[in-house]
Design a protein around this nucleic acid. Structure first.
Lengths: 168, 168
DNA sequence: TTGAACTTTCAAAAGATATTGAAACATTTT
DNA sequence: AAAATGTTTCAATATCTTTTGAAAGTTCAA
């Protein structure tokens, strides 16, 4: 396998991985491309390499910037904007964790708080089962929240050893 | 909020959470419904409670069974099949982790192995950057793989581990 | 073996999501 | 201030995913 083939395969693999995670395929592909390129790319470079439209490129690059995964770079003497990706994969993982926690875990925890207030006959079997489920899920969510928060704050890879300890 | 309202909201929240994770909304909703119901439900019960078609119900219940999250129950003297969900949320999490690892992490690790073999001029800047990226991502993936494997193998209920922390 | 009860399949339809590309907008150079 | 260069927006379009429901398949009691 030569470099262009390998690049193409990496981009497409990263893309379908993203898709399975509710991240738009193109966004993941642009990220993959920027991850493996040593120098900043312009919007035109990205369009050309991935065969996608200008609008699509613009939209997804902006989203990558929102996530903190990509940075806008201005090269002195050039009109164009260039883009680079954060290359430290550890940081990449913490940024993604931060965004997903914000978008997913935090809202679900809010809902769980509300659901615990549900009123009804405490002798009712369904009611008991419901309260029980919600309370168990809430406890699990809180623990997950703590673990992810620790991960997000972590600057080093001590995380793995401490997570292993938590589980064991 | 009364019980039916709370149930409905839990089901819809769990459903959109699933959707964000590449799990079909209906599959997640059926799972939510079975999670909070103390007794087994039949396909007709599920159809009625979620207002979905028979085909949809069948397809997604089958998938939940594949994931190990739901079990088929036969009640003596009844022709119908009934379904129950695994209620221990820790087990649920490990089952989901197992499936996702199998479907996502394992394949990406295979690809990464291949990409490390990519041939090209080792003096080429792009080549160097590519090899570097792939090698970093591979290391990260291997660490993640170990962590998830430990999690999957852990039989311990979260309840005890959080209890331990309270005591310490 | 038949028919009733139940389950599964799958092609068509609906629904959700992503992409394009041309027009509007913004900025810099001449 | 006009032209050139570059960026953003968004309605229309294309694509991908899910759902439906009727028909086919299966199982089992009589």
């Amino acid at each position: 396998m030569n470099l262009p083939e390998a690049k193409a395969q990496f981009i497409q693999t990263w893309g379908s991985l993203g898709a399975q995670w509710g991240i738009n395929r193109t966004m993941a592909q642009i990220h993959a491309l920027l991850l493996i390129m040593p120098d900043p790319l312009s919007a035109d470079d990205i369009m050309e390499q991935l065969n996608i439209s200008r609008g699509n490129t613009n939209m997804n690059v902006r989203e990558l910037i929102n996530w903190g995964l990509v940075e806008r770079i201005l090269i002195p003497g050039e009109r164009k904007e260039y883009f680079v990706a954060e290359k430290d994969i550890w940081k990449v993982a913490t940024y993604i964790a931060r965004e997903r926690k914000k978008r997913e875990l935090d809202p679900i925890m809010k809902v769980l708080q509300q659901l615990q207030q549900a009123e009804g006959d405490p002798k009712d079997k369904e009611m008991k089962a419901f309260k029980d489920s919600i309370s168990n899920i809430t406890k699990f969510a809180q623990q997950t929240d703590k673990t992810i928060s620790a991960f997000i704050k972590s600057e080093e890879s001590w995380f793995y050893s401490s997570l292993l300890k938590l589980i064991k």
